[in-house]
Amino acid sequence: MKKMTWMRGALALTVMLGASTALAADHLDGPAVKADASEDITDLFAFEDGADTVLILNVNPSATTSTMFSNTLQYVFHTTSQAKYGATATPLNIIATFDATQKISLWVGTTDYVTGTASATTGLTSASGNVKVFAGLVDDPFFFNLGGFHDAEADVEAATGLTTNAAGCPALNAATSAALIADITHNGHGTTAPVDYFAPVTGGYSGNVLSIVVSIKTSLLTSGGPILGVWGSTNTGS
């Protein structure tokens, strides 16, 4: 049995918040991206809509109407298709770049391409008709009761004598656990309504991000099979 200090216990519950800043989808998840919001991915979405697959990559937490996509970065969806989860995968990258006027260039592998102004929510469609893209400012779609978790953090700080088992799991008594569960579903240590930290706050978080929304005919993405893996990245331009 390893002794777990109360401080470590506090950190334990901070785990879902990150190191005391924010537990976010991917907002501010490292020093490098904190230094340049245009590089900072906030969210990734991937889902089906009819015959299309929709991929969304969001960047720039707390963006405003004057915030622009970088004209020196690449915004990339890395996809793989496979017959089943865990099987050999066939890769296909979707790459977006922007110029200084915010005109987008978007490649779907070497299969399709579209360029132009994509800020209208109706989208910009490729010549083939198989790819549609929107790029612009949107409401930050992430929602989470961050304050409740800060409360949980504080309550764990008040707990003492925590020990961990051989697998590294700390022992919490029933009362502590119940308090923590109440914390995370409320604010005010279980007494007030929860608050969405990622909603707009006057003078605070704008509640907006920059978003690249790509709708692609699913068959363009699934040459390796119906299970699609997707991750997103920001990269320096080549």
């Binding site: 976010a24 991917d26 991206v33 990339v76 920001t234 990269n235």
Partner: peptide, 29 residues
Amino acid sequence: FPAPPTIGTQIDRIGRPAVNTALNHGFDS
């Protein structure tokens, strides 16, 4: 249409939400 650009040096990535935040040195201040 032009060939896609070569992907440059990676800066940030995301797959599932909160993974890097929570599971990578989550306890390390």
